[in-house]
Design a protein around this nucleic acid. Structure first.
Lengths: 199, 199
DNA sequence: CTTGTCATCTTGTCATCGTCAAGATCAGGA
DNA sequence: TCCTGATCTTGACGATGACAAGATGACAAG
């Protein structure tokens, strides 16, 4: 139980859990394999038997992040009957997920510290994109939504999330403290659906 | 001339120039102070006399990037008389700048390897935001453009640039090869101004 | 021309990092 | 009971950022 067994038991998931915490605490640049091993109470070479690289571990965390993003969007959209409300809810969930775990969001999109060719990572990110795309396709329109609509919404939501995390919006005097992102997000999303509706 | 003088002469700018090249070649994660010193033909401790940190050097590069971005947007907008065309031109310049130097763009927005509190960096980024904001304010509208419009355009352009650089758009089957970003960008920008006009 | 000052650059060192090789430990089936 | 293989530790290597101490030389004062 509490005795430090030579065999950890479930080191792999312990590394992933602690890795997520470490990522949240130190950020991506402060993430260190040795520190992670230290926290789990294991030698620095132990993770090598479960992940060939640091990149492999981070790839796993990124894939988990994409899966969580997909799920968050799905549960946010579920109770909304109106397609427009559904799209807005998805956008909210997207940004909320990014802000809840900025380091993991950065890891998912802006990092060269992951194995980009990993099938798991590719599948997870494709699924997340599919969720947003699906919400767009359900919008009421005479013609099927064009590429521009999907890409526009994707860019708006992702751009807001990124700028919010990185503090890029703080130059705008109308944008208050970084922690109350909800109000500006609502304004942007409403403005977006208004514009999309007028296409 | 070609003899390795003990005193370099203008090591500071040489470091900045080589640093930009190294950043373009190896990316942000592959950037190393020692490798930079090696390329300039100088010992590894030499940069310390011109930049207290690696972060200080990268901060300078990021500030230069913001200034170049501002200038690119200005020159792109100059020949456009129509405010809408002006906004589109600015968006194009923004994305083009990001794609021309992805590593520096990442450095500007997504990096914790810079000194965020640097006055030079803050001023440069504020100026870049001001350029985009100015183009929005000039749009023809009865009422002054609200916050949502500015933020929306900012998010669209920035989101497109980021997704383009990081390969996030490649999941969209309508988005072809990563190198021909011009066509999709045009579609998104046209869709954006159409939506904004309908506000 | 000489001298001295001080910025500039080098050398050497330290802690830390990711990764590898070799050995120790233990679980579970033959 | 034993032994095979997975799991973990120890120790090491090269590389990195930062620091201390010494070498070099540009430049102004005398």
């Amino acid at each position: 139980m509490s005795k430090p067994a030579y065999h950890h038991g479930d080191l792999r998931t312990a590394l992933l859990d602690a890795g997520e915490a470490l990522l949240a605490e130190r950020g991506l640049e402060g993430f260190t394999l040795r520190e992670l091993a230290r926290r789990v109470g294991v030698s620095n070479a132990a993770p090598a038997h479960h992940f060939p690289d640091v990149a492999a571990l981070l790839t796993e965390l990124a894939a988990n992040g994409f899966e969580r993003l997909t799920q968050a969007m799905a549960t946010a959209a579920a109770p909304c009957a109106d397609p427009v409300a559904r799209l807005v809810a998805i956008g909210r969930a997207y940004v909320a997920t990014a802000i809840a775990r900025p380091a993991i969001f950065r890891l998912m999109f802006h990092s060269k510290r992951v194995h980009l060719a990993s099938p798991r990572l590719l599948a997870a990110s494709a699924e997340a994109y599919g969720a947003l795309r699906g919400a767009l396709a359900a919008l009421p329109a005479a013609t099927p939504r064009a590429y521009a609509d999907t890409a526009l919404a994707w860019c708006v939501v992702h751009g807001f999330a990124v700028l919010c995390i990185e503090g890029g919006l703080q130059h705008d005097p109308a944008f208050g403290a970084p922690e109350d992102w909800s109000t500006p997000l609502e304004a942007v999303l409403q403005r977006m659906v208004r514009g999309l509706g007028a296409g």
